[in-house]
Structures are given as structure tokens and as C-alpha cells.
Design a binder for these strands. Sequence first.
DNA 1: TTTTTATACTAAAACGTTTTAGTATGTTTG
DNA 2: CAAACATACTAAAACGTTTTAGTATAAAAA
Lengths: 341, 341
Amino acid sequence: MKKKPVSIRNIADELKISVTTVSFVLNGKAKEKHISKELTKKVLDYAKLINYRPNQIAQSLRTGKSKILVFMMEDISNNFFSKLARIFEDIAYDKGYKVIFCSNENDDEKSNELITLFNFRQVDGFIIVPSPGIKDTIENLIKDNIPVILLDRFFEGLDCNSVVIDNEQASFDATLHLIQNKFKNIGFITTASDQTQMMGRLSGYDKAVSQNNLKAITLQIPYSEINKGKSKEYIKEFLDQNPDLDAVFFATNYLAQSGLEVFKVKNPKLINEIGIIAFDDNDMFKIYDPAITSVHQPLNEISTALMDVMLPLLKKKDVAETTHQIMLKTELIVRESSLSK
Amino acid sequence: MKKKPVSIRNIADELKISVTTVSFVLNGKAKEKHISKELTKKVLDYAKLINYRPNQIAQSLRTGKSKILVFMMEDISNNFFSKLARIFEDIAYDKGYKVIFCSNENDDEKSNELITLFNFRQVDGFIIVPSPGIKDTIENLIKDNIPVILLDRFFEGLDCNSVVIDNEQASFDATLHLIQNKFKNIGFITTASDQTQMMGRLSGYDKAVSQNNLKAITLQIPYSEINKGKSKEYIKEFLDQNPDLDAVFFATNYLAQSGLEVFKVKNPKLINEIGIIAFDDNDMFKIYDPAITSVHQPLNEISTALMDVMLPLLKKKDVAETTHQIMLKTELIVRESSLSK
DNA sequence: TTTTTATACTAAAACGTTTTAGTATGTTTG
DNA sequence: CAAACATACTAAAACGTTTTAGTATAAAAA
């Protein structure tokens, strides 16, 4: 019933040679180790014949490398992250790495739990979208010489690899685009967060409105309330209190979703009268009516940047030696919702 | 710089006892193996003090269990699958299992590649949304005594665990709902596929229309064309050729997306005049205008069913001994798009 | 008193690899 | 003709666990 998988030993025994020789051949070291052409061929042929697959667990134990990466994000069911995961998956598999995706809900406790669960050493590297309070944890990973890349946001004062986008510029450009389309009272709906990505988005908006002598009209919803599903109430109240708003810029995709829901319930016509931009694109935006303008992150470039930074890191003796901070540009996808009405 | 992690041996040496004893204690076998209370406490305390974490790779090598599950789906960036992944993730971690998610694009070659990549034996179990032609591969996994659960679809004539929904009933109910809302010419847009889930959806639709003396108006788009991004052209042509359609039922979420896009481009008013139902829900559907009625799969129940079937399987000597076929009910979420106009 | 049973602990093998440090033979070189 | 080198291969340790099959002593039963 359960036939045992073939091992290197079976090959050695069958061919009456040592496991060492078999191992050398299978690892492509035949030349270097002076294994004769004939024997090399014999081993290779036989291995193929019996469909030999190395036991990766044994390899891992011996080499200390698991060929597994952990990709920890906020929430894999979020359109932005799932799209990114899909692309990264292919790139990683291509390089022979498996990926364990997990979601930390931007929660510190969950992040730490997950990181300890992966047991530090049994994983070759981490890609982490960090929750606000895990700077120390990250620092410890680096001290333990474990490859880490921060994604989407980073920590001021921590010298760590990171791949992020230019949030401030993206937000500035989007706001400016609204201004150029004659919108005067532009609301900015964001989270009450001091994480770098949100700070950048806020300051980009602030810069654009103040440079154009408009006033900043901002709603910052506490994270705890968002998790309780209260964002819609906050947005509704914000709209009520600012009846003169003629445009809204949502700082995240889930806020945009809540916002659109509020519009629909509150006053279906509003959606065609008010300017709208969302940070992060969504497949559905282009078929919405009006089609929603959005800030699109370069998913392919992010993924390749991650792998480009990760691969050399995996080979290095000392991961803290040199770090890479990569900042990528976004693209504003202009659709109907942000054009002069 | 790279401090070596502590091993069971370090504990043994420090306390001047054998590794066996330490292992017994750490595995909670102190009682059973007659280790004294005092020594047990000493070991536990010291292990905690030095923050001992077992090397899971070594454990895996010895026990043959990796505590890793593979969850292979069509495409993790698809809203349905990413939502499911998010829920399953929590359930699995709760039980001490890590999950490797991967996407097969419903392609046989990719499926087989991935399955061999995971190397059969180095993973405790598979949850697979199978592409059409991998029945043999699945059969071989079962012969090799590897736990497998098929998800979303299954193979006729293959005795394998599965968790699916009642597609025929779901489709029948949805179609009937359109009929009850006075729609007479209901188009069904689906993939040209003989996979069980699509066959079920088609036959549910067929049954409903024929029972009500309506004619079936069906578009079946070949998979290859969908992958080439041609679905929109097919749908457009279908709409042109069937100008009398007053409702459309999309058999998958990506077809619904393409369909809505076609509506928007072709004739924005159409969307308010025609009845629409989509198979699989999407966060954006409820904020669409009109809000889109959809067939909602019970994601929580699916995930728990998967784990409920998987856990005993992981303990069993012979996975083929008894198999479970679970079929769950869907829910029709009625929104504006399917109500009498 | 001898035999059995219970308690407390351990040596060593095993899991399947990789890698270090060899050996044995033949071929050049000085 | 010995020393150096090249070729072809291997024994055994190591990675960090779990587990089998013990040993040694003390207490209970015969």
C-alpha cells in the first residue's frame, strides 16, 4: 500500500557504489569530484528510471536551507494583496522557492505569533508587510541573521531592506489631478495611522491642497473602528458635516469600498456629481459607473524587486551588511470619476 | 553574529541528562516514561529559560510529518479563492498546520508541475481544485497514500474525498428566481467545460428554463479563449445575436466581470434594463448600480468541512479506507439586478 | 530468598541527505 | 626511481530530532 519512496541509498546499493558518489553526481558535482563519465551516466539514468526525487526535508536538515519563503501581508483576501501574491508566487516558484502566505490583519500580536510560529530558522526568508508595533521583532530577525524585506511600509530609523512605493508623490499627483479638474473641496479619507505609507499619502494630499490654496478636509478613522466595521458610519458623518465637498480621495481600497457603499445608500446621484479617486486599483473599478479613477501600484515591479533583493540576501553570510531600500512609482489610472463634471 | 539556535542536546548537556529524557519531557511523555516530577520540571524550566524551539525540519525528517498542507486553487487573485484562502488559513494555523497556497490556472501541466514540485512526500496533505485532466495524478496521490481533498469539483468514477457545493441546485434556484421576476429570455454565459461544477451549473439552468417552457440561450466560451482575454468579444457577439435577451446569468465571477464591462461599453443603459445574476459573490457587487444579485458560496462552511475531512485523514494509515463527499448549499443573495424591472 | 513489577533513566539507531577528509591507483615530473 | 600530482571513488560524521530496546535500582510478590 504505502510504498516507500526511493532514496539515494537505493541507487547506491543497486549500482554497488557509495552514497557519496551518488550525491555528488545528483548535485552536478561529478566533474569537480572526478566521477567518471560512464558512472555519472549510469547514476543519472538509474535515478531517472526509478524516478528519484530527493527528500527535501533531509536536504534542509543538512544544508540548513528550506527553500521556503514567508510572505506576510495584511490580508490575502484584499484585492491588492491577492493580486500581488499571485504574481510573486510565480516568480518565487521559478527560482525554486515555495511561499507560505499569511495574513496579520495589521495586528501586532498576530504578526508576532505568526513569526514565532515559523520558528525563525525553518524558513529561508521573510517578506513582511509590518503592523505598526513590530519594529523590535524585525530588528531581532535581522540580528538573528534572517533575511527580511519590509513591504509597503517601513520603520524610520531601522536599517532594513524594503520595497515601497512613493506614497507621497502618488497622493500628491492624484490630488493635483482632482484640482486640475476643477474640484475645490477635496476630502481625504484615511486611517488614523502613523505608519509610513499612510503618513506619506496624507502629506502628499496636504502638500497638493495647500500649494493650491485649498483647505485640507480630512477624515482619519481609527484602525480599531475600521476593524469593527464602523468605517461607513464615520464616512457618512463626515459627508454630512462637509456638505460642500465636491471630491473625495480614499486612501485605501477598503475605505473606497465603504465610501462607495455610503454614496449608494445616502444618495445614488451623488456618485456622479462628486469627484472620486481611490488608492489601489480594483478589477471592478473600470466597470463601475462612473468608472473609478485609482492609484495603481506596479505589482509586477514590486514582485520582481522583492525577489531581486531577496535572492542575494539568501546567499549572504551577514544579512545586515548592505540593505536595499527600493521606492517605486505608481500610476494614476484616470477614469470617469475624477474628471470635471 | 549568527548565534546557533539551542537544541535538545544543549539542554541535555546543561542538565547532565540524556537527550532521550529531554525529548520525552518536551513531548509530554514524562508520566508515561516514568520521568520524575522534579526532573521534568527542571527540563521544562530550563527549556523555557533558553527559549528552546524544536527544529521542525529535524522533527519532520524523523516523524515523516511536515505539518504543511498545500492548497492548490485556480487563481488566488480571484476574489472567491482569496476569500476562501483567508478563512482556511486561520483554521489551519489553529490546528498547527501551515499552508502553501498555489495557483494552477485550471491548467493540467501547471497542476502536475506543482504537485511534483511539492514532491509528494514532503507535504502532509493536499487540497486541490483540480484542472480537468489530472484524474490520474490524483489517483496516484491516493495510491501513494497521500491525503487529498478535491475542492469545488471532482472526477466522476474516482473515489476521492471532496468538498463541493450543489451547483445544479444553486443554478436552478437562481434561474428560477429570474423567471419568477418575469424574465423570459434568460441567457446563460458559461465556459465550454465538462468539469463537474460547470456541468452542474449548466444543467441547473437547463432544468429551470425547460420546466418553465422557456428556451435555453447559452454561450459556452472555450477556456483557451478566456485565457487569451477574449471573453468580452464572445459576450458582445452573443448579446448582438440575441437582442431579445432580457436577463443574463453568468456562470463564474470572471465572466460576470467581463460581462459587466461589455454592458458598460456597449450600452450603459442596458445594465438597468436587463436582469443579471452572477455565480460567486464579490465585495463590489453590493455597491454596484444596480447592485448585482449573486450566488454566494458558504466560505466558512467550506473551510471547516475541508479541515474536518483533512484532520482524520492525516492520522490514518490508509487514506483510501473511507472517503467523504461533502456537498454544501449555496445562498442566493438577491439584489437589485435580478428584480422585475 | 528468588522472582516479578515498577520506577527512573539512557545508548544508540534511525530519518535521508551533504560534505569532509580521506584511500587507492595510475601518471608525470625532476 | 622517488616525489608530486591527477583521477576515481568512499567511509563516516553531521544536521536535530524521535523512538526502540534496553539498564539499574528499589519495592512488592511468591
